[in-house]
Write a protein that binds this DNA or RNA. Sequence first.
DNA 1: CAGGCATACTTAACATGTTAAATGATTTCG
DNA 2: CGAAATCATTTAACATGTTAAGTATGCCTG
Lengths: 150, 150
Amino acid sequence: MSALRDIEHNLPLQLLKAREAAMASFRPMLRKHGLTEQQWRVLRVLSAYPDIDATTLAHRSILLAPSLTRILKHLEQTGYVARLQDPVDQRRATFSLTAAGSSKVARVAPDSEALYRHIEAQFGASNLDSLYRLLNKFSSAVQNGSNANT
Amino acid sequence: MSALRDIEHNLPLQLLKAREAAMASFRPMLRKHGLTEQQWRVLRVLSAYPDIDATTLAHRSILLAPSLTRILKHLEQTGYVARLQDPVDQRRATFSLTAAGSSKVARVAPDSEALYRHIEAQFGASNLDSLYRLLNKFSSAVQNGSNANT
DNA sequence: CAGGCATACTTAACATGTTAAATGATTTCG
DNA sequence: CGAAATCATTTAACATGTTAAGTATGCCTG
């Protein structure tokens, strides 16, 4: 019969729900700093991995290329990110934080860490560890077996 | 100093990554049926809970009210969902699947279940159980302590 | 019962998500 | 070498996410 499973066992929905629970506190914090969630993701990734190309950046910040194009345009205009055309491969460009971008990250970081401490206090450090581990295992396990299309 | 944590311990990002890993197979399937992820969420919730008002529907499908307004307008035009104005409270409307809507859900369900079986095979039923449990615990734990703004 | 407040959506405006197609630059190979 | 395939990024078009403000409607209290 293949009846539809209980909605409590809708995995994408439960992942989204957990994410929303976390973002409920992060979004207002970022908003005070004048950043969207995605802009912050990009700044954060560039802070960890300077001078990477757009494809790598998109992969690491879990953004699709068209979204990243728009976000980078915005961040360049704001002055937080600089674009460097690759001299060897003219198709490619690499990106990095400007001084203003680095200092922005430094200003947001303490507020971000405070929210993490809050989450750890509510959920428990050990639970959080288990969750990270399971999520990581899930992402690797499922991505490989993705040949179910046509 | 409050330095920024390792990006592997960015919880919203890891939740998003896991979700994308799952949705990578669901989205093309839904697309074949002419549905977006969110439209399917709404149909799925209405299938489980008929005749609920928009606020409850938004809560259960993890959608914001403005998004739901647009999605419902679309689903009404397509003929999958019917709106019933509440005779007592004129502000409120309740929604339910039409016959076409129910039959659409019935057609999508087997494909959805097949993908779940695939996920279980890759990730393991026991891991999946643990993940559901942790996600559920996380969502409840974090939502309560969300008084950190001003 | 009038004024004020809360409730249930809806609109508006801008940012992002998603798919397909376009544009240019590079590589591959006959 | 040169046409075809590939790659990196962008554009286009439509759907949704997000915040703020608007519109009715209902409730509540003086």
